[in-house]
């Protein structure tokens, strides 16, 4: 098995692990971590695609590599936004939760709480 295929299998496993974390862990910060795992799994799939596209004297196809670099930066920005939201939520409520009914209070109640 080539190291590229191996990396691809790790990527697949990371997507599965991350997905489990996203679904099963109720804490937003843990979900953000899990999202980053899925992200790196996806990037690894791009990585083996790039490696298997070695040609023309290059040891990997540059196009998917460029996409991964773009993806890593976007993933960081997404993490930053999610972290900022989580922290603000924690400051406002003393807890960080994604409970669905947290959003169903009428606005006048919310104004009182503030």
């Amino acid at each position: 098995m080539s190291s590229a295929t191996l990396a691809g299998l790790v990527g697949a496993a990371l997507v599965g692990l991350g997905l489990y974390g996203v679904i099963a862990d109720p804490q937003p910060l843990r979900k953000i971590l899990a999202f980053n795992l899925i992200g790196s799994g996806v990037f690894l799939v791009f990585g083996i695609v790039a490696r298997k596209g070695a040609a023309a004297g290059l040891s990997a196809d540059p196009v998917p590599q460029a996409m991964v670099i773009t993806g890593i930066v976007v993933a960081f920005a997404a993490s930053a936004l999610a972290v900022a939201l989580t922290l603000r939520l924690f400051e406002e409520t003393g807890r960080a939760t994604l409970r669905p009914d947290a959003g169903t209070k009428p606005p006048d109640d919310g104004a009182d709480a503030e």
Binding site: P28, A78, R88, E92, L98, G110, A113
Partner: peptide, 19 residues
């Protein structure tokens, strides 16, 4: 508007969108 329930809603939205 920064109300706590809107923050939770935005965070959920962001999570689904990232997924």
């Amino acid at each position: 508007d920064g109300r706590p329930e809107t923050l939770a809603a935005a965070l959920r939205y962001l999570m689904f969108a990232l997924f």
